[in-house]
């Protein structure tokens, strides 16, 4: 056997190919990133790059039909300075804050029920709660429009039963109708993270707490709730962040009093055509949401550590 002799006769391209092959075979990281690269590339191109460009746009300004690429803070001073926008930021945050609280409170007992009380067919219950999550958001919001409308289900129903003489006008087109609709639309998002964290709790911890003298209520607040907190926080963030930027619900059931920041951003990108201002509004709202979400998380952690 004469390996040295042999290798000199192999063309260099083939040897290079073999070396590359051997490198990938030996390196887990290289193989892993080779497989991850399509996903990472599309995320970079369709998420990271657009977001960076959005940031850049927010420092530019609109000059008629053209965009002036001179860097400026004008858009942010408009976005944060104008009374109308401030009101919208405040309203968006308080509506989605409300939605978050309502949804988590509504969903916790349901998640608790599935995790602790359902013995058989857990799977069926889980599917029942997740089906609405996968079905058309637009249609679920639209359903509330026909329920709450002036001639809608509630009004016409109550009138045909003779309970009402006149339709109730306060049902639709206000912040409350937005909160109700969003709470309904995002319910499944809250249940799943809470359910997962409840399901993970070691049942013997609960037995130990009872054994050590805790009643069911003390046990819930001292063991179950703190241990399910990661799920509650996850659910809160998963609802609070996207609902602040929700467009469809305020547009369909919000009326003028229920307009949220996303509706204004949309207008900047369509009718008004001031993309830099739209970008600044979008980024300012994301920043506000981010800060608020962090505050919520911290506040909840603190609240729980008090209980303990």
């Amino acid at each position: 056997m004469a390996p040295a002799n042999l290798s000199t006769r192999i063309p260099t391209a083939a040897r290079f190919g073999a070396r590359v092959e051997a490198f990938f075979r030996r390196s887990d990281a290289a193989r892993g990133y080779l497989l991850l690269s399509p996903a990472i590339l599309i995320m970079l191109a369709a998420l990271a790059a657009p977001l960076l460009l959005l940031v850049l746009y927010s420092f530019w300004s609109q000059d008629g039909y053209l965009v002036n690429t001179q860097l400026t803070l004008d858009q942010y001073s408009t976005a944060l300075g104008r009374e109308a926008y401030r009101t919208l930021f405040y309203r968006s945050l308080s509506i989605s804050g409300m939605v978050t609280i309502v949804t988590v409170l509504l969903s916790y007992p349901m998640a608790y029920f599935i995790a602790f009380q359902v013995q058989r067919n857990k799977f069926v219950w889980l599917i029942l709660v997740t089906i609405p999550f996968w079905t058309s958001y637009l249609l679920r919001v639209f359903a509330w429009k026909i329920i709450l409308g002036y001639n809608g289900v509630i009004n016409s129903g109550l009138m045909s039963l003779g309970i009402l003489k006149q339709p109730l006008e306060f049902l639709l087109y206000n912040p409350t109708s937005v909160v109700v609709t969003l709470a309904h639309a995002w319910a499944a998002f809250a249940i799943l993270p809470i359910y997962v964290s409840l399901e993970k709790i070691d049942r013997s911890l609960l037995e130990a707490a009872s054994d050590l003298g805790d009643g069911p209520i003390r046990r819930f607040f001292r063991i179950t709730l703190p241990l399910s907190l990661p799920g509650v926080i996850g659910a809160a963030v998963l609802i609070f962040v996207p609902t602040t930027g929700d467009y469809v619900t305020p547009a369909l059931v919000g009326g003028t009093d229920g307009v949220m920041i996303a509706n204004v951003i949309q207008v900047q990108f369509t009718k008004i055509g001031n993309w830099p201002l739209g970008a600044a509004l979008a980024l300012a709202s994301m920043a506000a949401v981010g800060i608020f979400a962090l505050l919520i998380v911290q506040a909840m952690r603190l609240a729980i550590s008090r209980v303990k």
């Binding site: 657009p50 959005l54 996207p242 990108f269 979008a282 994301m286």
Partner: peptide, 18 residues
């Protein structure tokens, strides 16, 4: 998982800009 945490309107407009 980031797209779960970014409002759809932001995903839409930033892609539109790009």
């Amino acid at each position: 998982s980031l797209p779960l945490f970014v409002p759809d309107i932001v995903l839409g407009i930033s892609l539109l800009i790009l």
